[in-house]
């Protein structure tokens, strides 16, 4: 029965991915993409990888879906939504060849996996008591391989900087009014605190269970975006300085901690004995807030410049 469920999930994953790509209606493709995120997070659970399942649920099924929906709405509003003619056979063949080659290479790589010379999970388990946290994934992300995480958050900050640069200087702030629906606003008073609480819970859980800064930050971003959609603006234009400070805070705190250990004569990014747990919590707290604000900025920035041809639609009709 377990195999049957796994096969169903696997076939469903493939079918949904292909349908989403081949769909002519863009909205249908978005719905299938949301379903794909959901199935992926189920697959990660089946593979006993709850950390990735959690991240996939927040980012894949949640925030990416909304970003796509918002982009679709924007395209429709500005009349830029055109259905392209199906690509020529040569291009289709080339794309097919490229993807099949990649699939072949990946299968070859899986089949020829080298036997690991050192058992990494054993090393992680041995070093876990000194890492300051009890969850091996968090220990790897923020202690043993914290260099990678530092660079990752650097990439995120860079992405949002590029987004902010693309935004024209005097673009009107998001002109869409919020939804004037009383039930929505009543529900928000319940939902927003619940989301903030869950974000805090995910951050705290990261110490000994799946969770952590990325999941918590994405949850925070979801709460911000929900507020934004319903009409409460947290736009960077209101409090530009605070917003910018928030965007770089995570990276800044991480870098400051990394450098300050150099003063004590320790190598870059190694925590002093005993205070690792405290420092990791500090970094994660800053990261959570920054990731939340970065994702919100990517959301709000995305559609501010594209508001020029507002009259186009009326001309067409």
């Amino acid at each position: 029965m377990n195999e049957m469920i796994d096969w169903l999930l696997l076939l469903g994953l493939g079918a949904v991915a292909i349908t989403s790509l081949m769909s002519q209606s863009i909205f249908r493709a978005v719905v299938f993409f949301i379903l794909l995120g959901l199935l992926l997070s189920l697959v990660w659970i089946r593979l006993d990888a709850p950390d990735i399942a959690l991240a996939e649920a927040v980012i894949g099924a949640g925030i990416t879906g909304i970003l796509l929906l918002d982009t679709l709405g924007q395209l429709k509003k500005t009349g830029k939504l055109t259905t392209e003619p199906s690509p020529s056979r040569a291009r289709l063949g080339l794309a097919l060849l490229a993807s099949l080659t990649l699939v072949g290479l990946l299968i070859w790589a899986v089949l020829h996996q080298p036997q690991p010379a050192i058992a990494l999970h054993q090393q992680v388990a041995d070093a876990l008591p000194e890492s300051g946290v009890d969850h091996p994934i968090t220990a790897v992300l923020l202690n043993f391989r914290s260099y990678d995480t530092l660079l990752e958050i650097g990439v995120l900050v860079l992405a949002v900087l590029v987004g902010l640069t693309l935004q024209s200087k005097d673009a009107p702030p998001d002109s869409l009014p919020g939804l004037p629906n009383p039930l929505l606003h009543a529900c928000l008073t319940l939902l927003i605190p619940a989301m903030l609480l869950t974000a805090a819970y995910l951050l705290w859980a990261g110490a000994d269970r799946p969770g952590g800064a990325f999941q918590a930050g994405a949850m925070l971003a979801a709460a911000f975006i929900l507020l934004h959609l319903s009409g409460t603006r947290l736009s960077p234009r209101r409090s530009e300085f605070l917003m910018k400070a928030g965007l770089v805070m995570g990276f800044g705190v991480f870098l400051a901690v990394a450098v300050s250990t150099l003063i004590g004569g320790r190598p870059f990014l190694t925590y002093p004995d005993g205070s690792a747990g405290m420092l990791i919590l500090l970094i994660e707290l800053a990261l959570t807030l920054s990731i939340g604000l970065i994702l919100l900025s990517l959301f709000t920035v995305a559609h501010t410049p594209a508001q020029l041809p507002g009259k186009r639609r009326q001309d067409e009709q």
Binding site: A57, G65, D70, L176, G178, A205, R209, G211, Q215
Partner: peptide, 22 residues
């Protein structure tokens, strides 16, 4: 179970985005 909690919290986001934007 935490993943389910997260999904439950984010369930209405798509509807709100859809009705307000698309």
């Amino acid at each position: 179970r935490d993943t389910a909690l997260v999904l439950a919290l984010l369930a209405m986001l798509a509807a709100v985005a859809f009705v307000s934007r698309v």
